[in-house]
Simulated scan of single mutants.
Amino acid sequence: MNTPANPLVFNRKQLNRRRQRARASYESVDFLKKRVAEDIEDRISVTRRQFDLAVELGAGLSDLREVLAPHTGTIVLCDSSPALASTLTPPALCVDEEWLPFKQESLDLIVSSLALHWVNDLPGTLIQIRRSLKPDGFFVGAMLGGASLMELRQALLQAETELTGGAEMRVSPFADALDMSQLLQRAGFTLPVSDRDRLTLRYDNIFALFRDLQASGETHAPFNLTRKPLTRRVLMRAADIYQEQFADPDGRIRATIDIVWMTGWAPHPDQPKAKRPGSATVRLADALGVEEQSTGEKAG
């Protein structure tokens, strides 16, 4: 699936181990997942559709079965961690998001909540999702992206550069909403939509942020394990930089979280299509019931 143009960035085995360890602590930090679940339900409800067979990718830490139930028939929960998948209420499967096992055109709905930002080959996964959907099947996904954890990234980069003369990637790279719109189109989705929801979390200090990232299984899991470990000296300097540059007047620090949203449909002949430019038969002014105002001489 991965090519030289799509090198491995994340160690998926390490990620699954961390997600498994986070199972016991995730409930204390599941506020993001709960918010995303509510928004997913909103985005599905506006379709006014019932989906017979639905799949949730990345369900292990907090599944969406209750949220999806009013809009679906059978819901299959999936997680890439064997340990987490074994704890899910059946029907459930252990599924690697990079290698989907579903038959082509077999699913009516695919949902993914805060999982796809850990995929090495996101374009390839989106293509697999689209191929797994029946004609006019629906996909809705949410993942961390954009400027997420930009303050932490900057503080660690600056501290390590100051103290060691160089720095390594300590915070995962994230895709932007604009990138996602293009990827959805390339994957063959029709009516693709991508947008961003920016949140600002506040913590007492950088170490409280670290605890939440660990409790949710979201600490960086790089494929290249030869990197140098962070020293206590670098961490303490990063904590000072974070406090100096990203603290509010009350002393608490800010952490930016961007949730990037994706929705798209598998192609179907009956779906709405964009009109050919110049094919309109009614003036906009007439449709709005207003008087047309000239903007000047026509060009040429």
Rank of each mutant, 00 (worst) to 15 (best):
R227I: 04
M169Y: 01
I257D: 02
Q154A: 15
L213G: 02
D195R: 15
L152T: 01
V29I: 05
A5V: 05
S28W: 14
R237W: 13
G73T: 06
K13F: 14
L122E: 00
G137S: 03
V140D: 01
M143F: 15
V260I: 14
R43M: 08
D179V: 03
A280Y: 00
I44H: 02
D108P: 07
L8F: 10
D30F: 01
E105L: 10
L61R: 10
R48S: 12
S112A: 09
N16G: 12
A208Y: 04
Q243P: 00
T164S: 09
I127H: 00
S148G: 02
F10G: 07
A221Q: 09
L201C: 09
Q245N: 15
T3C: 03
T161M: 15
M262E: 02
M180N: 02
A177L: 10
R198A: 11
S25Q: 15
C94E: 14
T87R: 12
F139C: 06
A239F: 08
S86N: 14
D258A: 03
Q20K: 13
P173C: 05
P4I: 01
V290N: 06
S216C: 01
D63K: 04
G146H: 09
K275P: 08
R186D: 12
L144I: 12
D258F: 03
A221Y: 04
E105V: 08
P101M: 11
A155M: 10
N224P: 02
G217K: 09
M236Q: 14
F102N: 07
L68E: 01
Q104A: 09
E168C: 12
F210C: 07
F139Q: 03
N6P: 00
P82F: 12
A208G: 09
A85W: 08
I257S: 08
G166A: 15
L57E: 06
R131M: 10
L152C: 04
A24G: 01
N2I: 10
L199C: 03
A115F: 02
G217H: 09
P267C: 02
T190G: 00
T281P: 01
V119A: 11
P269H: 11
E244N: 13
E27C: 09
A69Q: 11
F246E: 05
G188K: 05
Y26R: 10
W99N: 14
A92R: 00
A274L: 13
A285R: 12
R196S: 11
I129C: 03
D39G: 00
D179Q: 08
D179F: 05
A221V: 13
L178R: 15
A221T: 14
A175T: 03
P135T: 11
